[in-house]
Amino acid sequence: MAIPIIGNLLQARADQNVGLLAEFSNPGELVEAVEAVRREGYTRIDTFSPFPIHGMDHAMGLPPSKLGYIVIGGGLTGCALAFLMQWYMGAGPQIGGLWTELQSYALNISGKPLFAIEPSVPIAFELTILLSALGAVGGMLALNGLPKPYNPLFYSERFGRASDDGFFLHVAEADKQFDQTGTAAMLRANGALAVEYISHEGAYDVNEDGSLVQTAAAPEPAPRPAPAH
């Protein structure tokens, strides 16, 4: 049952990358293009560059990251869990059943209390750090829409340069303002070197007159081997 849910989630993530991909010559042009595109009213845009560009968050109108709240949530959960665990294992109520084994940690060590704050703090500290760190990594992945095993943008040959010397602006087809010909013309007017249309079927160069030329096609799915009898 879980497999289709994950499949749908990944498909939805990939769908967001259907749209127009425009290449710009340098980071400054990219920032200016983003500002222009946002002035036109587009909201579902994304940018790709080989390195972080100062001022891009502001240009894209990104709100402050929500990651901090996820991290502090993880931290407080870890802290509370650690104290709860140590209290329960050392001096918790005798419930019996499945949980009895855990309570074998009620050990008398040189007459110290079965549960005390002092020795519990290092464990609480460690679990606070652990869940904060896991929250930070997991939250970062989730907020970035990762993992994304299939991304149609990779049909574009140009796009490989996003990790080298290419600066790209992507406008999603899901955007309310999206109009293949009009948006492509607008991107070109704002300095795009090349505009491509990317769909699940492949990558297409968008010419100045709006016509499409396919440059890459999605591979045919491999035929499934016939089930053995």
Binding site: S110, K112, E118, P119, V121, P122
Partner: peptide
């Protein structure tokens, strides 16, 4: 501050 206190608490 806490490390100092905890070690002394534990050593007793």
């Amino acid at each position: 501050a806490f490390s100092q206190y905890m070690l002394i608490w534990y050593g007793n």
